[in-house]
């Protein structure tokens, strides 16, 4: 019986030792009541790759002012954060790098900050990982589609969106595009707008792109849709 006691004691010691060796949690110096996104949501990255921009979040107090020294913890299935926990800086912000996992698709990133009276304030960001097919789609998008479907203008690439009437849909416009079936979208890319009684200003790409490229394009459009696109049909859990 004595031996058993000793064994349990040793095990407890070992466990305690293990806990100590795990990375140290920074001690919060202050507590906020609310956490908000400054930048870094809805980014695209290739699978397993870091997001192009860091995640920047801000913790505010009850008075709405930023809180310095509040602890922010990041979680996300398959996402690696450097660092995973940080204290807010003098402007009440934390900046972390995030690397997405192996799967293409959506990643949910949650940031949490403890409140002074217990409990925690949290918020979620959506990040998107591109697999092979979506990467091909993105390259095609950047080459052929972006000039008319993206309102953003750069000196190298002036947007043509405002010159067109009716204006083309942005590919992130899930509210509209999610309601169009895969077959219809494929037809529109392959045979142009008139195939679905839409504007002839959308040219037909069927003789320019291979079927696999049109499929890749479709996959890209579905992946970046906001709100996210839900595959029709049976849904299963894990």
């Amino acid at each position: 019986m004595k031996r058993l006691g000793l064994l349990i004691f040793a095990a407890a010691l070992l466990l305690a030792g293990c806990r100590h060796s795990s990375p140290q949690t920074p001690k919060p110096a202050a507590y906020g009541t609310q956490i908000t996104e400054v930048s870094g949501g809805k980014q695209l990255a290739q699978v397993g790759s870091p997001l192009p921009q860091p995640l920047v979040l801000q913790v505010n107090g009850a008075d709405g002012n930023p809180v310095t020294g509040a602890l922010v913890t990041f979680h996300g299935d398959g996402v690696q954060f450097t660092p995973a926990q940080a204290l807010t800086d003098s402007s009440g912000q934390v900046t972390v790098e995030a690397q997405l996992g192996y799967n293409p698709g959506d990643y949910q990133v949650t940031a949490e900050t403890p409140k002074s009276g217990g409990g925690a304030a949290s918020m979620s960001l959506r990040e998107i990982a591109l697999g092979y097919e979506q990467t091909v789609g993105r390259m095609l998008n950047d080459k052929y589609c972006i000039r008319c479907h993206d309102p953003e203008s750069t000196p190298e690439r002036v947007s043509n969106l405002d010159n067109l009437s009716p204006a083309p849909h942005q590919f992130t416009d899930g509210a509209t595009l999610n309601r169009i079936s895969d077959a219809d979208l494929t037809n529109m890319i392959a045979h142009g707008g008139p195939a679905l009684n839409k504007s002839p200003q959308m040219p037909a790409y069927g003789a320019t792109l291979k079927p696999a490229e049109i499929k890749a394009m479709l996959s890209y459009i579905r992946t970046i849709a906001d709100p996210p696109y839900q595959t029709p049909g049976v849904k299963y859990g894990k």
């Binding site: 799967n103 293409p104 697999g131 092979y132 097919e133 499929k215 996959s219 049976v234 849904k235 299963y236 859990g237 894990k238």
Partner: peptide, 13 residues
């Protein structure tokens, strides 16, 4: 269909 946890995930195209 729809298995998301490894090792049963479908290989992406």
């Amino acid at each position: 269909v729809g298995a998301t946890a490894q090792p049963f995930r479908k290989h992406p195209p």
